[in-house]
Write a protein that binds this DNA or RNA. Structure first.
Lengths: 127, 127
DNA sequence: GCTTATTTCATACTTTAGTATGAGTTCTTT
DNA sequence: AAAGAACTCATACTAAAGTATGAAATAAGC
């Protein structure tokens, strides 16, 4: 705040004495307050917003999840049962059970609900 | 952009002719660019961030979830089994089953995974 | 104080989820 | 073309999850 007032006075003095061009002084003032506007806005917004987590496709490969297994994981996350997933993907429920088992194994989860949480923590599912 | 340049020229002219005080012109410039800084920043941040959804406690009451039932819902959401929730809350697994059934009924969910999704959509659980 | 809602628990049951194993098929990569 | 990975499916389990019902104890509101 004090620095701002000082800048203010210096600007006034500089223009009065004619040491610098008026354009330069105005440009500096503009730039400084432009920066201040960005800074303040950033602080306010950071309290009310959080960054969107992008899906980490490299981590999916790292974990060893196959394309189909990840697909099943996504369906689990939206709350579908094995039967419903089977119908949606046009395969048998047994096939889905196999995929689910593999997903749980690879995510080190005991249950599908835990798998969802782990997957979100690993950023392979949107939160 | 053109408006900015115009403002720039007007400021220069005003100071040169001495029609207004230097302080006023500088203050206007400062305010305008401060505002521009905020505007630009807001647009950029809105692309990379999303607002945090606050928990809607009124909706919890509206749905008719009791304190204990909501507590159980939260534990479900972090991926715990009925047994684990029972141990955590120092009650029997049968009690948890009763609570879970009531939660599913009130949220109109068929499964706990679906309940999690519905609860998040209703903003009674953090996403 | 009385009523009502909440919390607790049990028993018995049905349904879904998850494991283990084996095996045939397709797709890919060398 | 052969090898390996991925996808499919079945059978037979075990383990959880979820339903239905009834009931007792406690807490809260009138």
């Amino acid at each position: 705040m004090l620095a701002l007032l000082a800048l203010f006075q210096i600007s006034k003095y500089t223009i009065a004495t004619g040491n610098s061009s008026v354009e330069t002084v105005i440009a500096i003032i503009a730039l400084v307050f432009f920066g201040i506007g960005i800074m303040i806005n950033k602080r306010i917004l950071h309290k009310d917003q959080k960054p969107i987590q992008e899906i980490d496709y490299n981590k999916i490969k790292e974990i060893g999840l196959s394309k189909r297994e990840y697909e099943v994981l996504c369906e689990i996350a939206i709350g579908l049962s094995n039967k419903e997933i089977a119908e949606k993907l046009f395969v048998s429920e047994n096939t889905i059970k196999t995929h689910v088992s593999n997903v749980l194994l690879k995510l080190d989860a005991k249950r599908r609900t835990q798998a969802i949480q782990i997957a979100k923590k690993l950023q392979i599912l949107e939160q």
